[in-house]
Amino acid sequence: MQIRLGGLETSEVAALLAEHVEDMRRYSPPESVHTLDLDRLRTPDLTFWSLWQEDVVLGCAALRELDPTHGELKSMRTSHAHRRRRVAAALLDHVVAEARRRGYARLSLETGSPAEFAPARTMYAAYGFTPCDAFGPYVADDFSMFMTLDLADQPAR
């Protein structure tokens, strides 16, 4: 597996992100879907990575700078066909390491609260993410859960 910077110009990543949006819309009402489209993922405040095995995209993740000490994990996705192969763990390791390299004190995320998101919440909790209040542009709602990782208190993995 190889993590590559970018990939948004490929049809494979576009299809993976379309799968992501479709799932988010299946489990959450429109006002609670916070996925980013391809154009929004290309903005300067975001860094996007895709994870590949040869010419097959397995997953993706992005890091958005909220301020000089606070980053946000965005667009974390493993393709349905490649789940349970440590794709998400590899991407999360990469994003957390980059957040540390940038000097962020905190890394936060928004994920869904329905049962379908339980595996993601479990993985984030295993990394030390804990529930927190809505942050940045978000407003608390019944379909969102907010989590944060205090990078200063957590040893590197």
Rank of each mutant, 00 (worst) to 15 (best):
R84Q: 11
R85L: 13
V87H: 02
A88K: 09
A88G: 14
A89T: 06
A90H: 13
L91Q: 03
L92K: 06
L92Y: 12
L92S: 08
D93Q: 14
D93K: 09
D93V: 02
H94G: 04
V95E: 05
V96L: 05
A97K: 10
A97V: 10
A97Y: 06
E98K: 14
E98R: 15
A99Y: 06
A99P: 13
R100H: 05
R100K: 12
R101N: 05
R101T: 00
R101L: 07
R102S: 11
G103W: 15
Y104I: 06
A105V: 07
A105R: 15
R106S: 11
R106M: 07
L107H: 06
L107F: 07
L107T: 02
S108C: 15
S108P: 14
S108G: 08
L109P: 09
L109Y: 04
L109D: 01
E110L: 08
E110C: 10
T111Y: 14
T111W: 12
G112F: 12
S113E: 07
S113W: 06
S113N: 03
P114A: 00
E116W: 08
E116H: 15
E116M: 12
E116T: 12
F117L: 08
F117T: 03
F117W: 05
P119W: 09
P119I: 03
A120M: 03
A120T: 02
R121E: 00
Y124G: 01
A125C: 05
A125P: 08
A125E: 09
A126E: 04
Y127T: 02
G128Y: 01
F129L: 00
F129Q: 00
F129W: 02
F129M: 01
